[in-house]
Simulated assay, not measured.
Amino acid sequence: MAEEFHGYAAFDKEGILKPYSYTPKPLGDEDIEVEISHCGICGSDLHTIRSGWFPTIYPAIVGHEIVGKVLKKGSKVTDFNIGDRVGIGCQVYSCGKCDECNVGYNQLCSKMVFTYNDVWKDAEGVPTQYQAHGGYADKIRAHSDSVFHIPKEISSAEACPLLCAGLTTFLPLKHHKVGPGNKVGIVGIGGLGHLAIQWAAKMGAEVTAISQSDKKRDEAIKLGATHFMNASDPNDVKKFTHSLDIILTTSGDSNTDWTKYMNLIKNRGTLVLIGLPDAPIPIPAFAFMRFIKVEGTLTGGSQDMKDMLEFAVKHNIRPLIQKVPMKDVNEGVKMVLNGKARYRIVLEN
């Protein structure tokens, strides 16, 4: 009789998650099977449930902020033991041998398998019959290189958002070697932004938190922001014009005034896109004329994940979370959709 894993899947764009069982890929020699205890709800999950960015392979179990214990392991797995507490982020496989993997960009591996809305491939990179399903479930399998030990100092629930939101906001700051003397802007004080503020502040940067109202001013300062800018106040916007070395945009609103944010950046500065709207981003050509760069970022590689977890422990950086039972997954998703999450929802089995 075939093995079955159980979870909550979206069956169409309506996004109502229902119980679903599937046959997982066979456990390979270098694979790990994890019994899931917690899984965060990420904005990417919502985009996927609704086929926002790309067409979704339905039924789809989403969730890529996964923490649990090692239940089984392949014969060649040496870095993990049964019972170890581990985490899995946005991918469950990379080849570890290609040019991208060799320079630490596992997330750009041509044979990479995303944690969900993807299909497992064979050794030659040919798609198999096994769909990749995520963490709104009881179990998951992943290649051991995509599995990470969770430091004892971090609780399982708090670890979940670090595995995507944490890594995604940490990586561009790491790559740009942000530190004392840098002026960093964080657009959006939510699930991503509240972590980005903490990273940048602990790296020693002068941090400006940017929001559409004054509601989160006090909280942003508590998180480590040096300054707060109300993007709806023209006088506030004028005060910060051409003042920031780098801006991380963490909100994915299709109605964003991108020219406004480009004008906040110093000559030769950088805008990093993290929160991605479903619609194309309109940025006027003249916004680039001050040698401003616009770049994207995609989670992080294996070493980036380890560096991020180590930094979180060293500087006591944690996400602000709300826990929801896994069986109430639709309520958790609704909280995120309605903007009621403060700031990440974590599902508990």
Rank of each mutant, 00 (worst) to 15 (best):
A142E: 06
H143S: 13
H143D: 15
S144T: 13
S144L: 13
D145A: 11
D145K: 14
V147E: 03
V147Q: 01
V147S: 08
F148E: 02
F148L: 09
F148P: 01
H149M: 10
H149Y: 06
I150F: 06
P151I: 15
K152W: 00
K152Y: 10
K152T: 13
K152P: 01
K152M: 02
S156H: 08
S156L: 03
A157L: 12
E158H: 13
E158F: 07
E158V: 05
A159E: 12
A159G: 12
A159H: 13
C160T: 14
P161V: 00
P161N: 00
P161R: 00
L163Y: 00
L163G: 04
C164D: 13
L167D: 00
T168L: 11
T168W: 12
T168C: 10
P172G: 04
P172K: 13
K174W: 08
H176S: 15
K177Q: 14
K177F: 11
V178N: 06
V178E: 00
V178P: 02
V178T: 15
G181A: 12
G181D: 14
N182M: 10
K183F: 15
K183H: 11
V184M: 08
V184Y: 10
V184F: 14
G185A: 07
V187Y: 03
V187R: 01
G188K: 05
I189S: 13
I189L: 14
G190K: 03
G190C: 07
G190Q: 05
G191D: 08
G191Q: 14
L192Q: 02
L192E: 02
G193F: 05
G193S: 05
